Simulated assay, not measured.
Amino acid sequence: MSGGALVRRRALLGSVVLVSLVALAGLFSYLTRDSRAANNHPSGAPSSSSARASTQASATPGGRAAALPAPPSTRDPIAFGKAAAAALWSYDTRAYSQPELVAALHRWLTTEGQYVDADSVERQVPSPLLWGRMADSGQFATAAAAEAHFPESFTRALKADPGAITRAYVYAVTVSGKQSISWTGSPEGGAEDRSATLAVQCRPDRPCALVGVMPSVAP
Rank of each mutant, 00 (worst) to 15 (best):
L6A: 13
P162D: 00
V173C: 02
V170T: 03
P61K: 04
P162A: 01
L31P: 02
P187L: 12
P187Q: 10
R94Q: 03
G81I: 03
T197R: 08
V19E: 05
R206P: 02
P162F: 01
V102Q: 12
K178V: 15
A87V: 09
S153I: 07
S186Q: 05
Y96L: 02
G190W: 04
M214C: 12
G163A: 06
G113H: 09
H106A: 13
R10L: 04
L198A: 10
F28I: 07
A164S: 04
L68C: 12
A104T: 13
P128Q: 02
N40A: 11
G113Y: 08
D136R: 13
A218N: 14
A145Y: 00
A5K: 14
A118C: 10
G163L: 03
G44A: 11
G44D: 15
L27A: 04
S47Y: 09
W183P: 00
V211Q: 02
L6M: 07
A25E: 14
E192T: 10
D92R: 01
R167S: 09
V213D: 09
A85D: 15
P72T: 14
G62I: 07
A38W: 05
R206M: 07
A66H: 05
T110F: 01
T55V: 12
L27K: 00
S2C: 10
M214L: 15
V200N: 02
V200L: 02
Q201G: 05
R8S: 11
V213W: 06
N40V: 15
S216D: 13
S43L: 15
A85L: 15
T93V: 01
A191L: 08
A199Y: 02
M134R: 07
A25I: 08
S73W: 12
R9D: 07
A25C: 03
Y169C: 10
P77W: 14
A168R: 10
V125H: 04
G3A: 07
A5E: 14
Y30G: 11
A209T: 08
L27S: 02
V19G: 01
G163H: 04
R194W: 06
S186G: 05
D117V: 13
E147I: 04
L88V: 14
R94H: 00
S120N: 13
A191M: 12
A84Y: 12
L21G: 12
A57L: 05
V22L: 13
L158G: 05
G190D: 08
A145D: 07
R10D: 05
P187K: 03
G44K: 06
V125L: 01
A23D: 11
L198V: 12
R133N: 05
S43D: 07
C202V: 06
L18W: 10
P128E: 04
A160D: 14
L12W: 09
Q139L: 13
P162T: 09
A218P: 06
H149I: 09
G44I: 09
T93Q: 01
R167P: 02
T174I: 05
A53S: 13
T142P: 07
P46F: 04
P99R: 06
Q179G: 00
Y171W: 15
T60R: 15
A143T: 09
R75W: 10
A57F: 05
L24Y: 08
S15F: 07
N40G: 11
D193P: 08
W131P: 00
A67H: 11
L210P: 02
A85T: 15
R36S: 13
W131V: 03
E152L: 10
L31S: 08
E192H: 08
N39H: 11
D92T: 04
L13Y: 04
A37N: 10
P215S: 01
